[in-house]
Amino acid sequence: MSELDQVGPRLRAVRKARGWTLDDLAKRARVSPSTLSRLESGKRQATLELLLPLTRQLGIRVDDLLPDEARDPRVRRPEIREHGHIVAPLTLEDSPVQTFKVTYPGGAALPELRTHDGFEWLYVLAGKLRLRLGDQDLVLTRGEAAEFDTRVPHSLSADGAKPAQIISIFNTEGARIHTHLTDAVLDPTEQ
Rank of each mutant, 00 (worst) to 15 (best):
D23K: 08
D135P: 14
I60N: 01
L66I: 15
P188C: 14
Y123N: 07
V14P: 01
R71T: 03
H154Y: 08
G127L: 03
R151H: 12
A175R: 00
D24V: 06
E40S: 10
D68Q: 11
L22R: 01
T150S: 13
D23I: 01
Y104L: 06
D72G: 11
R142I: 02
S34I: 09
S32Q: 07
A17T: 04
D183V: 15
T35R: 03
L181F: 12
Q6Y: 13
V124K: 03
P33L: 03
S41C: 09
R76G: 10
R38Q: 15
A184S: 13
R74F: 04
T182L: 11
R18L: 07
V7G: 00
H85C: 15
Q165G: 02
S157Y: 02
D137R: 10
G84A: 07
A88V: 07
Q45G: 09
Q165F: 07
A145I: 08
A46V: 10
L186P: 00
A145S: 14
F148L: 11
K43L: 14
K128R: 09
D135E: 15
L110T: 05
Q136I: 11
S157V: 08
H154K: 06
R15S: 01
D135F: 12
S155C: 10
A29D: 07
G160F: 11
H180A: 15
G174T: 04
K43W: 10
H178G: 11
T172E: 14
